[in-house]
Design a protein around this nucleic acid. Structure first.
Lengths: 249, 249
DNA sequence: CGCTTTATTGAGAGATATCAATACTTGTGG
DNA sequence: CCACAAGTATTGATATCTCTCAATAAAGCG
């Protein structure tokens, strides 16, 4: 784990391309400067490194600057499950606020960097900047919604539907960040995907092969290309948002 | 749906027995009075009535004063799933903050009453009272943790374990509110339990019967008595917190 | 008291897990 | 640069859990 301070101007929130997803959404430049003053440290992580562990006292929450992380929970008997994957601009560590200790483990899936948001200082700042306060609440609430949709997936969907939903969710989040959304590298292993979706690795593999056979995707190792988005959306049980808007010229 | 204002003093947060779980945790009497001024309306619901529906614009969040509610999500194809059960002192409607619209439906499982917390006014007040702000964040964070533990249940546990976990979770939440925790009435149907746990009603029924046969519980309709807590905890994969403390005299 | 809803129990079907073997990648060291 | 080892992924065969379908029973309600 490697700490760095953000004296160089290109690390400031004010110039960060993630500003539109991250904490400073909607802030004027004066207020962004205040956030800049608060978020002046970052952590650099190598693949496999922990950002925090279950039980660590909460000192900060984190926003992903680049890279991908996973969070996972452990059961007494050693079983564990991946609960979330976190892309640039997403906030980590929110589960630690409730009891002052992180409830999950956060681990980098690739070389990554996160901005450190000292939590106490942040609460102080949020009281001074209503827009910041509201944005933080929105982030917490969306995290909740995301988890609840995930619950829906695990509770009502079959393996095939879960996997389609997962791929499309990833695709949407990449698109929102300006990345290509129909061709990307999966940063997580099949084991991690299976764990996240509540299915076994063999089933993940079989379903991916089935998708490829049906012409829905092309997959080579971790590089995936979504060929038939509509088909995937149909499997996932949700309408394709892009297609709907195109269908009404 | 029946609205009422809280002019009578016994409705105020300052005298509410739920104060210790609800929003005003840790506030001094002056600040509680400010919350009282904000939370001056309630809604009375009959069994089956909606508190809000998916898509309704967010105006307020709600705290359960008495009764029980469920929240559920719908899928395009009509499938739906119960996402949470809400006991007195718990906050509802948080999923609406993210996009300004509730993402779920909230429905009373029995005659219930909830306090209306006008959301905009609440944000204003939270900026004035740091303890209130922090308590709100804790509530949001715990909601997140609760959902994530639920994910763990749906993702890694078999039906038997899920049901044991569910019963113990209910028991703990009842205990925290000062109710008897080893004998209570289930306010939800088997269908709702099954939906919440991602299993079919028949499986719920079979598992309950199996528990009863094994002497873990006694169940008659919706009245349930937890006989062998340790046995249930063992099934659920978690240690019995009570037993641990008793084991060290 | 009969009707409707809700819950229990049984038998068979189906999806996914588990076990096992093979193939492919990646990294290391000679 | 190749060979080997360790980790990761695919594919097949069988087992198991839970679902589905079906019948019955019990409870709530008018």
């Amino acid at each position: 784990m490697n700490y760095a301070s953000s004296d160089s101007p290109n690390n400031k929130c004010s110039v960060c391309v993630l500003g539109q997803f991250c904490l400073p959404v909607g802030l004027n430049s004066i207020d962004v400067a205040k956030v800049d003053a608060l978020v002046k440290e970052r952590v650099h992580l190598q693949k496999g490194e922990n950002l925090y562990r279950h039980g660590d006292p909460l000192s900060s929450v984190y926003s992903v600057r680049f890279g991908t992380l996973k969070t996972e929970y452990c059961l007494q008997d050693g079983r564990q499950q991946v609960i979330g994957f976190h892309l640039p601009g997403e906030i980590l560590g929110l589960d630690g606020i409730g009891d002052g200790r992180y409830q999950s483990d956060a681990i980098a899936l690739e070389e990554s960097e996160v901005c450190i948001i000292r939590y106490e200082a942040f609460e102080d700042l949020a009281r001074q900047i209503p827009v910041l306060q509201h944005q933080f609440h929105r982030i917490l609430s969306r995290e909740l919604t995301q988890d609840q949709r995930h619950l829906l997936s695990l509770g009502t969907m079959r393996a095939e539907e879960r996997l389609a939903t997962f791929l499309l969710n990833l695709s949407q989040r990449l698109a929102a960040r300006g990345y290509i959304n129909n061709e990307f590298d999966l940063r997580m292993s099949r084991v991690e995907i299976g764990s996240y979706l509540g299915i076994q690795i063999e089933t993940v593999s079989r379903m991916l092969s089935r998708f490829a056979e049906s012409g829905l995707i092309q997959i080579k190792q971790r590089h995936i290309k979504l060929i038939d988005m509509d088909g995937l959306y149909e499997l996932s049980g949700a309408p394709n948002p892009d297609r709907q808007s195109k269908a009404r010229p």
